[in-house]
């Protein structure tokens, strides 16, 4: 936990180099640069069309951001342990579909919307936790590496979504859409809930013992075990957390689409991982800040929406994202020194 960034260092205790300004001390170098990049993108797209910073458009971007950030947060935890979770997108899609069946039946029975959505949320969470557990079992007991284990659940969850739905969306829940669209100013309530979850995850990653173990395992799993940490149990819980957040993403999809669409999570692990990488989290584990991931996800969202607002050919969208990743990776390489990230 770093030290320089989170705590006003005790004046007597250390003579660190002259404090480099408040903003810089709040953000590590990489995050400062990401913020600059984000500001530049916003400025550019706004200059192309000022509607880009209208409250309606900000709300749209926050909705898109909400679909991405929970998976990216889970992925951040996983990657900090030195692992990877390829199954987040498929989990979101599958959870949304399973919950949609239940919600459709409840709606058909004229259950109140609040009950329907609560049940849906619980089911999404449960499906996500279940897939996270399967990932952990494949890793801890079948001894598969995370890449392979989560690739298997990716395939299985994708396949099951299709088999269950026959490829078509399930349900037509206009009330859910309206709830998801409700907002105060530019801030949709749904995004507000998502942001609260993200904040809790931030605090736990950077200020709690749970987060400390997460970093320790990624930094040196042997040292973590030798220090008495139950590495298996902790790793299991991290994949379960990732699954949970992916499952909840399924609910976000459902709310915004008014249906459980089997395609909604297809390929969604890629932007989630991209957000983490852009955010400067090390794929080797042990290092990174959730703030970076949040900035990474914001950049991806801004690019996706901005290209449409600026009426740039959609063919450039993939290229733009690839460029973001490339720049972020080089930023890491150019960084003079990796300060304490934990």
């Amino acid at each position: 936990m770093s030290s320089v960034t989170d705590k006003p260092a005790k004046p007597a205790s250390t003579a660190v180099a002259a404090s480099p300004g408040r903003l810089r001390s709040l953000l590590t170098n990489q995050q400062f640069l990401l913020l600059v990049a984000l500001a530049a993108l916003v400025a550019y797209f706004t200059s192309r069309d000022s509607v880009f910073i209208s409250s309606g458009e900000v709300a749209t971007m926050l909705a898109t951001f909400s679909e991405l950030i929970l998976m990216a947060v889970g992925e951040t935890y996983v990657i900090i342990t030195g692992g990877i979770d390829l199954s987040v997108g498929a989990t979101a899609g599958f959870a949304g579909v399973v919950a949609a069946f239940a919600m459709r039946d409840l709606l058909a029975g004229h259950s109140p919307e609040a009950l329907v959505l609560t049940v849906g949320t619980v089911i999404c969470a449960a499906v996500g936790v279940g897939i996270g557990l399967v990932n952990a079992i494949l890793m801890n007991w079948a001894r598969l590496v995370p890449f392979v284990a989560t690739l298997i659940t990716l395939g299985a969850a994708t396949g099951m979504s299709l088999v269950l739905t026959g490829g078509a969306p399930i349900g037509a829940d206009a009330a859910a859409i309206n709830l998801a669209a409700a907002r105060i100013g530019p801030l949709p309530y749904l995004a507000l809930i998502v942001l609260v979850i993200v904040a809790v995850c931030w605090v736990y990653l950077h200020l709690s013992r749970y987060g400390r173990y997460t970093f320790a395992i990624g930094s040196n799993a042997f040292a973590a075990r030798a220090a008495g940490i139950n590495v298996r149990r902790h790793t299991t819980s991290v994949y379960v957390l990732s699954g949970l957040l992916a499952g909840l993403t399924g609910m976000v999809f459902y709310m915004q689409l008014g249906s459980g669409a089997p395609s909604s999570g297809n390929g969604a692990e890629l932007p989630a991982i991209a957000a983490v990488v852009i955010g400067g989290v090390s794929l080797f584990g042990g290092m990174g800040r959730l703030t970076g991931t949040i900035l990474g996800a914001l950049i991806l969202t801004v690019v996706q929406s901005g290209l449409i607002i600026a009426n740039v050919s959609p063919n450039y969208s993939q290229v733009a994202i690839a460029i973001c990743i490339a720049i972020a990776a080089s930023l890491q390489a150019l960084r003079p020194q990796n300060r304490s990230q934990t």
Binding site: S3, F215, A216, F222, A223, G286, S340
Partner: peptide
């Protein structure tokens, strides 16, 4: 135990390493 091979977590601070597994809350 002090292990011959890498008993510390390199990305954590000195204090975090000394207290690893026995964190003060």
């Amino acid at each position: 135990t002090l292990y011959q091979d890498a008993g510390l977590a390199p990305h954590l601070t000195i204090g975090s390493n000394v207290f690893l597994g026995r964190e003060k809350l």
